[in-house]
Design a protein around this nucleic acid. Structure first.
Length: 668
DNA sequence: TGGGATGGGGTTTTT
DNA sequence: CCCCATCCCA
């Protein structure tokens, strides 16, 4: 097959795809066929004789990485076993798995997520005799992360937390665990301290591509930079207007850094939009022009079809949800669409409940991506904690989680007793419990001692079994039976049978995930370690994503997707732009605007926005004001509520005008 | 000493 | 509304 780029791509796309040597910066506007360009670019590289193994493509989500591989496979018709497409974090994890021993990590180290981190911080605070209630653990976790990723330094106003930071990191080492930031940071350390490894990776990946470049952090850029600085075959693709992850360290100054570090780079702009109607594009362009800090670019489309941008003002979140459900049915029939042509986007997760309820009662099938990750659910984390301890006895966070779940009568004081032993013997908590529970005359009640040693024995037993050739799915099932986990769930919710059953179902789903993993021939390795790694970075997507369902998600999760008709709910000041975001830093208004931009550019044809007049928040009902961004849309493109939608038409039409005045008065 | 009952508070976005 | 922490009882 000879690949003719110009027949499948427009001239800018083809230029971008064909420029495979040297540094390239590709600014790709929303809906400009970026993914198409990237996949053809890699297919073209392969066709030019570049081996799969020399290409490294870094993406933002696991899903994007998987999709990229799949698309290239489709184009080329060849298996892509040697091609590396990965997220930054997964890439870092792979490196640490291979060479972690250089840095003192033992095999099977645990990867801690944010909630594990917060748990550890709490413990560290107690240890340093600081009252955990006196600080906001959430922002503390953020500080720790910012320091680790080099975004912040300890200064006079947070110096008090420096010892805590040290404590936290030494605990991680002790527990043979890493946090998410380590997955980027430790590989950098590794490359700094072991030049031969850096050399190896530089030669291994001679062509590097970074997707969603605007969302990379300074450290992630550093990682790419040191790998690519010699061969300089680095292609970065991004859109500064869609940078929406600054709170996680994304820094679109990386675009400037790139231009500085690679002065010989070529810049290509993809500005033709293939996704949306002219109406949507015009509105999006007008909106984003209000951002001062951005690269100049103007989306255009050959499409002059008129789409719909409509705005309505439901009374509260229930009416909003009902409106959306009704509208979906209406638009679906009128345009003979399917449910999966619809996306409902939300700024925050807590807006989900009302919408889900309405969809449920209207019998509209839907999937949620976002909300709490499947793997973050308590019942799932519990089981993962068992597996983690089995894989890594030093993982104290996980051990503490399971030690009294299900109840074994091991409470505060027993635990303190074990802690003291660990302290004395300078050993891990696990070894301490192990020793104490088998020892005579410990001062602990016999029953508790028995329970403790039963747990230790169980861990040992399953360690042996799970690392043998035996079927892991049935072993996990057996373990769940051994600890009567399902009974525990029922006992936990004595007055809510339904909730218990739902959790039990989740546990079953988890078991089926193990089974699916075990059967998957493409998996990277087949040990328990590999399984744990495979889920440690799993994103928020539900395991069962099916077609024929309305897609419900946060705006953040919607990046890269498109729908015939998009609903954007909660278009209210305080929600988008989000109040907290602005309180943190008024300059965040630009990022909030980009979020709004991302949301509206998801729509191919129609965009329905709702702004409630009142909204229930926690316990109280608050009066709301329409989002200030609505003022920035060209008024002639936005349909206000029509005759048949609201009883009191005039007030509805005037409402926005009124609110607008209120807003303008409020802002200035 | 651990477990159940009671009261207070809360996540904006996610690898 | 639900989860977590604390308090008091068995």
């Amino acid at each position: 097959m000879a690949l003719q780029l110009t027949t499948v791509l427009n001239s800018e796309q083809a230029d971008a795809a064909a420029t495979i040597e040297g540094p390239v910066l590709i600014i790709a506007g929303a809906g400009s066929g970026k993914t198409r360009m990237i996949t053809y670019r890699i297919a073209y590289m392969l066709e030019q004789g570049i081996p799969q193994s020399e290409i490294l493509a870094l993406t933002f989500t696991n899903k994007a990485a998987a999709e990229m591989t799949e698309r290239i496979r489709m184009i080329t018709g060849k298996p892509m076993a040697k091609l590396t497409t990965s997220t930054f974090h997964a890439f870092g994890l792979a490196i640490l798995k291979r060479h972690g021993s250089y840095l003192g990590y033992a095999k099977g180290f645990s990867v801690y997520d944010t909630s594990d981190k917060i748990g550890m911080l709490k413990a560290s605070l107690v240890e340093l005799q600081i009252d955990p209630k006196s600080v906001d653990l959430y922002s503390l976790a953020e500080l720790i992360s910012a320091v680790k990723t080099g975004r912040k330094k300890f200064s006079t106003d947070n110096m008090e937390y420096k010892p805590l930071y040290a404590e936290y990191n030494s605990h991680l080492k002790l527990y043979n665990a890493v946090d998410f930031d380590d997955l980027i940071m430790q590989p950098l350390v590794l490359f700094r301290d072991f030049p031969e490894l850096l050399e190896y990776y530089r030669n291994r990946y001679r062509y590097i591509l970074v997707d969603e470049f605007q969302d990379t952090s300074l450290q992630q850029y550093q990682l790419v930079y040191i790998l690519a600085s010699i061969h300089r075959n680095l292609c970065v693709v991004g859109d500064d207007d869609q940078s929406i992850y600054s709170w996680r360290g994304a820094d679109f100054r990386n675009i400037t850094n790139f231009e500085k570090d690679f002065p010989e780079s070529k810049e290509i702009k993809l500005e033709q939009n293939y996704r949306s109607t002219g109406t949507i594009i015009q509105a999006a362009n007008t909106l984003i022009k209000n951002n001062v800090k951005r690269k100049k670019k103007l989306l255009w489309t050959g499409d002059d079809k008129r789409g719909i941008i409509a705005l309505s003002y439901p009374e509260d979140e229930t009416q909003e949800a009902d409106f959306i459900a009704d509208k979906i049915k209406e638009v679906m029939i009128k345009n003979s669409l399917r449910y999966d042509n619809f996306g409902i986007l939300l700024r925050t997760n807590n807006l989900l409940t009302a919408i889900e309820q309405a969809l449920l009662s209207s019998n509209i099938p839907y999937t949620v991506s976002g909300g709490q990750s499947f793997f973050q659910r308590k019942e799932i984390k519990d089981i993962i904690a068992y597996l983690r301890v089995i894989a890594n006895f030093d993982d104290e966070v996980s051990l503490l989680r399971i030690i009294n779940t299900p109840k074994r009568g091991i409470g505060k004081s027993t635990l303190q007793f074990y802690r003291n032993i660990a302290e004395q013997k300078k050993c891990s908590l696990f070894s301490a419990i192990s020793a104490a529970s088998h020892a005579e005359d410990t001062g602990i009640r016999e029953s508790i001692k028995r329970n403790s040693s039963e747990l230790i024995d169980l861990i040992h037993l399953y360690k042996e079994q799970l690392f043998s050739k035996k079927n892991k799915t049935s072993l996990v099932k057996a373990m769940l039976t051994d600890i009567s986990y399902k009974n525990h769930l029922i006992a936990e919710h004595p007055d809510n049978e339904q909730l218990a059953q739902w959790k039990i179902k989740n546990v079953d789903v988890f078991v089926s995930i193990i089974e699916r993993w075990e059967r998957n021939p493409d998996k990277k390795g087949d040990s328990l370690y590999d399984f744990l790694n495979s889920i440690s970075l799993a994103g928020k997507t539900e395991p069962d994503q099916e077609a024929g369902k309305v897609n419900l998600m946060t705006v953040h999760a919607s990046k890269g997707l498109e729908f015939h008709t998009v609903f954007l709910a909660g278009v209210e000041d305080h929600i988008i732009p989000h109040k907290r975001s602005l309180e943190e830093d008024p300059e965040n208004i630009e990022e909030e605007r980009r979020l709004f931009y991302v949301a509206i550019t998801r729509a191919r044809n129609n965009l329905y926005m709702t702004s409630c007049r009142t909204r229930k928040y926690m316990r109280e009902v608050i009066d709301t004001v329409p989002s200030r961004f609505l003022i920035e849309l060209p008024p002639e493109l936005v349909e206000q509520p029509g005759e048949d939608t609201v009883a009191d038409t005039e007030s509805a039409v005037n409402y926005f005008e009124l609110m607008r005045q209120k807003l303008i008065a409020g802002i200035s």
